[in-house]
Design a protein around this nucleic acid. Structure first.
Lengths: 224, 224
DNA sequence: CTCCATTTGTTGAAAATTCAACATACATTT
DNA sequence: AAATGTATGTTGAATTTTCAACAAATGGAG
């Protein structure tokens, strides 16, 4: 566990928790560390919502695959970020999405019900964790809002620019995105080839430059 | 306040709170009741996130209007439901959406920071409310997931059917939706005329019947 | 370095959406 | 009952997306 202490300290779930207490809490939560290879399922749609995951290394994606096999990427999480917490907190029977390893990764799984339900050990950090969880889940809500802002746009160009401008707002006009072209298309909910064409067009128009996943916005005034 | 006790008792924010304590808490939260007419703004995009609203009567909508005036309805809330809580809990500077009265309505506004920040009165129900808030915010998260399931579909028909099947799952095959045609289009993020055309087509195909906002699904096996 | 597999870019045809304009239905008021 | 305003349905043209197929580029492995 010690090996992961730095990542865990970054995790907002343990904000304002001292290192020694952290280890005690992990025991209380039945924490276990697991490794997953790229494309492996971590949590599968339909499973009961019992565990909360903490990404220790690598990247995991929240994905939904419909009846026809169309993949849709809802969100992407990297080191120190949580997944599955909303399903546990809302006490759903079956989780409505899957969590997949986007690359080789390590995750810590904890028994979510030990957080949400009363802790029999009367663990004094229980309420601190609930408070932290509230902030985390609320922040996810904002992420969903951003995602809806994107998908509410009607054209591929508008969706792409809305996403890129969101990123530029946080990271500055040069930034790296966590998606390759196919993944970006699955996140923006558009056709990959159409997306590639649109990126080329924006490049020709001098709105942006990009090299793989690294984008630079040149004229942020460009009409979205 | 007494007049609204029934609605407030329904509100999950006050779950496991006795009536007498409820009144005390409302004082602690600086609760005020306000009336809004149809189409009036309750909270406007860009405002600081300070208040949590509880719908007492009528319907409010979470909307986003883009640069070109295209309206997008993110969600709709009725009596006893909360709005604005995620923005307060996530401590954002400016709220990213607006809250509008979809019809004449009454709402209770409470000072959200009094919930999220330490209560100086050491109010003993503070932690109970935080716990309730966690469940509410997590449940909203699931709603967003449903919304994304809808908007991730590519065609108007698929978006509509996804929404109707979601409703049928909860309410049974006959149900009333909280949207007129234009609002439904703004919620599904599609063109209104195209939506009308698709509804007519589904009607002709014998997949559903509808009268205004009341829908009945006839063949739920219909391919989405 | 070459080969192979994967990713990204390009293109044209088919399908679907959007847009605008109008027709019809519905509800309310005068 | 007529008139008015709003909501809903219909249609065709223009735009955009999707789909499929292929070309080009990239990145590792041997």
């Amino acid at each position: 566990m010690r090996k992961y202490q730095n990542v865990l300290r970054q995790c907002r779930l343990f904000e304002h928790v001292s290192d020694e207490n952290l280890l005690a809490m992990l025991g209380c939560l039945h924490a276990s560390i697991q490794r997953f290879h790229k494309n492996q399922m971590i949590l599968t749609e339909g499973m009961p919502a019992s565990h909360i995951g903490i990404v220790l290394s690598g990247t995991v994606q929240l994905v939904r695959v419909d009846y026809y096999g169309n993949r849709s990427i809802v969100a992407s999480m990297t080191a120190s970020q949580l997944f599955g917490e909303s399903f546990v907190c809302a006490e759903v029977q079956a989780i409505p999405v899957s969590i997949v390893a986007a690359e080789d990764c390590e995750v810590m799984l904890v028994d979510g019900r030990r957080i949400v339900h009363a802790c029999s050990n009367a663990c004094e950090f229980h309420s601190r964790m609930i408070f932290n969880l509230l902030k985390i889940v609320a922040a996810k809500n904002l992420l969903f809002n951003q995602k809806i802002e994107i998908t509410s746009r009607r054209t591929t160009r508008e969706k792409l620019m809305t996403y890129l401008l969101q990123q530029a707002k946080v990271q500055g006009s040069s930034f790296v995105i966590p998606y390759n072209r196919q993944e970006l298309a699955d996140f923006l909910e558009v056709d990959r080839s159409g997306l590639s064409a649109e990126i080329s067009k924006l490049r020709r128009e001098g709105v942006l430059t990009c090299r793989k996943n690294a984008f630079t916005l040149l004229r942020e005034d460009a009409e979205v």
